[in-house]
Design a protein around this nucleic acid. Sequence first.
DNA 1: CCATGACATCTTCCATGGAAGATAAATTAT
DNA 2: ATAATTTATCTTCCATGGAAGATGTCATGG
Lengths: 169, 169
Amino acid sequence: MEAMQPDPIAAIVDQWKRERPDLDAAPMLVIGRLFRLTSALDQRLRPPFAAAGLGSGDFDVLAALRRSGAPYALSAGELSRTVLVTTGAITKRVDRLEARGLVARSVDRSDSRGRLVTLTPEGVALTDELIAVHLDNQRRLLAGLGEDERARLASLLERLALTLTSDDD
Amino acid sequence: MEAMQPDPIAAIVDQWKRERPDLDAAPMLVIGRLFRLTSALDQRLRPPFAAAGLGSGDFDVLAALRRSGAPYALSAGELSRTVLVTTGAITKRVDRLEARGLVARSVDRSDSRGRLVTLTPEGVALTDELIAVHLDNQRRLLAGLGEDERARLASLLERLALTLTSDDD
DNA sequence: CCATGACATCTTCCATGGAAGATAAATTAT
DNA sequence: ATAATTTATCTTCCATGGAAGATGTCATGG
């Protein structure tokens, strides 16, 4: 599995223009690039998690707990909503993290249907370490853009996200 | 699995600011939003493919073949490079598409290690139908932005992608 | 108080993709 | 010409996540 030339998306749009001149493939210049870029960024951000024996999905759970503040406890449902995966996936992620001693499950006192997932001290320590590395890596990946460009990009992405959620949901 | 409020990313950055004031989580305003947005767009673009009994990954293969032009034939390696998945994943996608009569495999005359994956007439017809729907859906998802905003977003995404590929690879 | 329905989490099953090795064919060196 | 290397695809195994149903608990109405 090798890599590709700069801006393969423009080439794809050109191919469609040639094969289907009746269609306008311009939306791919945004959406296609979003997908490619996200995939490329994901690949480059994974290594620190892999080195710690975690999938990046598992780290999402640790990070959600850590940034929620002491006592670093959230329910499976809350985790499901914040990290945008099904509760079934949360169960499995928590199983893995629990097996590694990074989180612990306890029964919610006020509702024994619910389990609270809590960071252990080891979980807090590892998360604190990884989040710093992760943010540094993110910063480095964005370093090719100027400060103003990053701000405009952030703003456009926010606007697009807002128009999506207002449409339907 | 429910949805979330508008702009959850800004809230996440605020949480980190409170919990770890020594860190700067601003890169998430770009990268976090990229991931969220891509996930949201993907969910909204899938239904036509699912209705045709395809995963969106399978459609990527059909589309790559279709836009390559007659005779709509590419090798597994070429497909792997254009759709950015391993050749093993291509084998499986082609297996599924072949079982549905949308593509056919044939041995490359000039190199019998290689197999050419070719769209069948049914494959061409389905792809032509789906790509039109797909592009319309993409256009609708971007309709909340003005023409100038879409252009600036496309341009910023391209620039970011270029700075990534020049860095390393 | 008990029955019914709602809810939270977990379990099971399935689909997908990556990693690494296996197989087959082409290329290169001697 | 033949052995060694490279290349292209496929196979096998494993990890992950979604969908839907199972289980246990709570809430509500009679």
